[in-house]
Structure formats: C-alpha cells, structure tokens
Simulated scan of single mutants.
Amino acid sequence: MHTDTAAGPTLPEAGFRLRPATARDADFLTAMLTEAFNWDGPRLTRDEILAAPHIAHYVTDWPRAGDFGAVAEAPDGTPLGAVWARRFPADDPGYGHVDPQVPELTAGVLPEHRGRGIGGALLDAVVAMAARSGVDRLSLSVEDGNHAAGLYASRGFVTVGREGDSDTMLLRVDAG
C-alpha cells in the first residue's frame, strides 16, 4: 500500500486513490452533501439544499479556515466520494453539532461505488488529518436506518445525543 502524506493511504488495488479536498472540489462536495441527504432515496434536490442555509452551510465558501477533508477518485481522476470536516458556531449548528470547537463530518459516496471500502478509507484519512492538525474530537449525525452508522461505530464513534430520528456521534481522536 502506498501512502499519500497529505490525505492518508492510497489504495490502487481497490481501484481508487485518496487526496486532500481543495477549493476546486466545492461542486463535488455539494454533490456528496446531496447524496448524504438522499441516502435512502430522493428527498431534496441540489437546488433545495443550496437554498436551505442550515444545510448549505456544510459547503458554503469551501474551504474556510480550519476546514479539511479528502476525496476518493478513480485512476482517471473521476471523484467517487468525499468526507470533510467543518466547525459550526453555536448560533448556526450543524445536525451533528456538539461544540463549536468540534468539527462535524459530512460523508458521501456515489451510490454505484458504495460497498467498496471508499467510505471507510475516506473516514480514516480525515481522522488522520484531524489528528495531525491537533483536533481532538469529531462529530457527525446519522439517521436511523443508515448503514453508515455501522461504519462510524466500527471506527470508534459513539452516540452522544439524539435529535429527531438521528443520532449525534462523537469520536475522540487519538493524536497517536
């Protein structure tokens, strides 16, 4: 296995590689935010997501100071999925908000590429980025029935709260 020092492992044997998310990924992150909201079927369009400030704030002005993330791409450079982290103030919290100092993760993988280890590899890369940057905790929100909850639990996220039909999960990052 090769290592990309900026994002974590690259996985050529799995047919994808990881790289840090940059400003040029803003549109793809918006697509992945749309996937995250529509994990169980169509609910919101991209335009509806961007028109809702409490949702759009996950991608607005990407990247802001303190934002970090990773993108998985096919060997030809086609993006397949992304995981990214952003802090939210107490007066504009995200769905998985724990504290303004705790970045909240958003994750999405294109449906036709799920189940190939992309989400886990992205999650591991972003947790490693957090550790390298001194972030000690990460949070996220996951709805009931979303199979990604098992992935998050397998990586050490624990449920610390509940809002509606979603759990707020927290990971204590090991600075290693």
Rank of each mutant, 00 (worst) to 15 (best):
P89T: 09
R19V: 12
V109P: 03
D174L: 12
A31Q: 15
A90E: 13
D27C: 10
R64M: 11
A36V: 03
G41R: 09
F157Q: 03
F88Y: 12
E104W: 02
G161M: 05
V71G: 05
T168D: 00
A148Q: 07
L123T: 13
L110W: 08
R46H: 07
D27K: 14
M32C: 09
A149R: 15
G96T: 01
E143N: 03
R172W: 05
Q101L: 14
D92K: 14
G108H: 00
G156I: 06
R24W: 02
R162V: 14
R19N: 12
E35V: 15
P53W: 07
A70H: 01
D40I: 11
D76L: 06
H97C: 04
G41Y: 09
D136K: 10
A175I: 04
H97L: 04
A82H: 03
E143R: 11
T5H: 14
H57I: 06
V127Y: 01
A52V: 04
A65R: 14
D174G: 05
A175Q: 15
V102E: 07
L11M: 08
D99E: 10
D61E: 15
R17W: 08
P103L: 11
D76M: 07
V158D: 05
P9D: 13
G41V: 04
G120D: 05
G96H: 03
L151T: 04
T159A: 15
A125D: 00
H2L: 15
L29E: 02
E48W: 00
P103F: 05
L29C: 09
H2G: 11
S141H: 00
V142D: 00
D99V: 05
T10M: 08
A125V: 06
S139A: 14
L18N: 02
H2N: 11
R87E: 12
R114C: 14
E48M: 07
P93F: 06
V160W: 01
W39H: 08
L151G: 01
T159D: 10
F37L: 14
R64H: 09
R172Y: 07
I55A: 06
T159K: 13
E35F: 08
L123V: 10
L50G: 08
A148T: 07
D4T: 10
I49H: 09
G117M: 04
V102H: 03
L140K: 12
V173I: 06
D47Y: 04
A23N: 08
G176K: 14
D25N: 06
G66A: 15
A148V: 05
A14C: 12
A131F: 08
V142F: 02
G164W: 10
A52M: 12
R24N: 11
Y58P: 00
L151Q: 00
R116K: 15
D144R: 12
R132G: 15
A14G: 09
P103R: 04
G145C: 11
V173G: 02
G119T: 07
H97F: 11
A21G: 09
R162K: 13
A74Q: 11
V98H: 02
W39T: 14
E48P: 01
E13D: 15
